[in-house]
Computed example of a mutant assay.
Amino acid sequence: MASDRLILKAIEAVDRMVDEEERKVYELRMQTLADSAALIVSAEEKGRKKGIAEGEHAAKLAMARQLLDLLDDETIAERIGVKVETVAGLRREGSG
């Protein structure tokens, strides 16, 4: 029964698209929806990548803070993979 209703709906949709202009509008709408879906997926992926990068950076800063009393800024920066200026800023925050 349900499949019969779906077939009837499909036939009705095809009948409505007999007009060339309506068919073009329908195809454009479907393409626009597909493009929008692709943009959403792309944005979500970029958001995940950005979140991972921010998390990794936060972890590096946490490690650098733990090493401030043990090593100089240049060594910390080199070992952890951050800029010397970043480590110097952490040192200033800790002493301020």
Rank of each mutant, 00 (worst) to 15 (best):
M1E: 14
S3E: 13
S3D: 15
D4W: 02
R5C: 01
L6H: 10
I7M: 14
I7W: 05
I7R: 15
L8Y: 00
L8I: 04
A10R: 13
E12N: 15
A13N: 05
A13E: 03
V14I: 09
V14N: 07
D15T: 12
D15I: 03
R16G: 00
R16Q: 13
M17I: 01
V18N: 09
D19N: 14
E20N: 10
E20S: 12
R23E: 08
R23I: 03
R23Q: 10
K24Q: 12
E27L: 07
E27Y: 02
L28C: 05
M30Q: 13
M30P: 00
M30V: 14
M30R: 13
Q31S: 06
T32P: 01
L33H: 04
S36L: 15
S36P: 01
L39Q: 14
I40L: 15
S42E: 15
A43T: 07
A43S: 13
E44G: 06
K46Y: 10
K46I: 15
G47P: 00
G47Q: 09
R48Q: 06
K49F: 06
K49I: 08
G51K: 03
G51S: 02
G51M: 02
I52G: 04
I52T: 12
E54W: 00
G55C: 04
G55V: 01
E56N: 11
H57C: 06
H57K: 08
H57S: 10
M63R: 03
